[in-house]
């Protein structure tokens, strides 16, 4: 009973912390001044937000097939996120979008 309660509290804490990071990442994606700095904010939601929320849900799932699926989703997201981020940053870089903010003044 108490072990179950501790598990519940642990998973709630994880999920709330994950929600916090996801939300902060969303705010950052709106606040940051240029494209590359926005990518940093977006990776906030992609890394710790994903890890925390999915770990919280895994704790709730317990030792079931659902937990394995959630773990697979988490591993897949953590593998693809840097790849997608690199592809995006590289495409922007090759297209000539300058990473130095002083050279792109007055952009939003």
């Amino acid at each position: 009973m108490t072990a179950g309660l501790a598990l519940d509290i642990g998973s709630w804490v994880l999920m709330l912390a994950g929600s916090f990071f996801v939300f902060v990442g969303g705010v950052g994606a709106l606040r940051m001044p240029d494209f590359y700095t926005r990518m940093h904010a977006a990776s906030l939601t992609d890394t710790l937000g994903t890890i925390l929320i999915l770990s919280g849900v895994i704790l709730q799932a317990g030792l079931t097939l659902a937990a394995i699926k959630l773990a697979a989703i988490m591993v897949f997201l953590l593998l693809t996120c840097p790849t997608a981020a690199y592809a995006l940053a590289n495409a922007a870089r090759l297209s000539g979008l300058s990473p130095r903010p002083e050279q792109t003044p007055g952009k939003d």
């Binding site: 969303g26 994606a29 992609d46 999915l54 849900v57 997201l77 922007a92 979008l97």
Partner: peptide
Amino acid sequence: GPTIYDRVLAVNMFGTKTVLLLSVIAF
């Protein structure tokens, strides 16, 4: 926006958030 890459970034973010939302809604 303002650039196309900002939009792709936002859509990518939207997509990963959809995955998280689906996992949470499942439970």
